[in-house]
Structure formats: structure tokens, C-alpha cells
Amino acid sequence: MVETGFTVYLLAGAGVFIIGFHALLAQAHLLRRIMALNVMGSGVFMVFIALSARTAGEAPDPVPHAMVLTGIVVSVCATGLALALADRLQSVTGATELEGGPAPGPNAGSGGEESHP
């Protein structure tokens, strides 16, 4: 078993990951699902950082540290792409969710930027 101080962070990372995962499947609105993905990602990064800090006494392990930086950049890109796609989807179909979304009206896409759940 690892030192308790870091175990807390590792467990918290696992918890955050699962909260995001649960929300991803439980929520319908695309904006919430994209946020859920970000929460999931934060959980993974937390685990990486805890692993990086785990080297007791010495300097932190730079390898997982650098991996997190890479992961964060990828996650920012994923979020940007997903948001642009969600917006395009809404402007073409009028839908803000995938399952059971509203049928496209004749004026879909011409109106407001966002629909609030």
C-alpha cells in the first residue's frame, strides 16, 4: 500500500473520473456531456499528478508530470472541437441532445445561440 497522503489523491482522482463518466451517460444535453468529459479528464490527470508526487522525499517524477501537460493540451483541443461540433449540430438540426432531441423546426438554426435546459 502506498503512503496515505497520496492515496487520498489517487482515490479522489478515481472518484472524479467516475463522476464524470456517470454524468456523461446520465446527462442528455450536449454541453453537459462535454463538461462531463472534462471532469473525467481531470480525474485522470489527478491520478497522474499523484503518481508524480509519490516519490517520497526526492524531487517529483517529471515523467508523469510532463504526460499531464500533454494530456491537458489534448483535452483542451477535444473540448474546442466538441463544442464547435455541438454548435454546428444545433444550427443544422436544432437539437441540443442526441437522443430524443427536438425535431428540426422550419426555422431551426436561425434563432438563438443556446437553448437552456
Binding site: F21, L24, L30, M40, A82, L85, R88, L89, T93
Partner: peptide, 25 residues
């Protein structure tokens, strides 16, 4: 196509994160 893309993305992204969590372990 856009609906299919969104569904694809919503599978692909969490799938990557599952993989990445495995890599961390």
C-alpha cells in the same frame, strides 16, 4: 452526418480517457 459525428466523438473521447487511466496505472 453531424449527428453521427457527435455520437462518434462522444464514444471516442471517453474511450481515450479509459485508455489513459489504464496507462497511468
Amino acid at each position: 452526418a453531424l449527428t453521427a459525428t457527435m455520437r462518434y466523438l462522444l464514444v471516442s473521447l471517453p474511450a481515450s480517457l479509459f485508455y489513459l487511466m489504464g496507462v497511468a496505472l
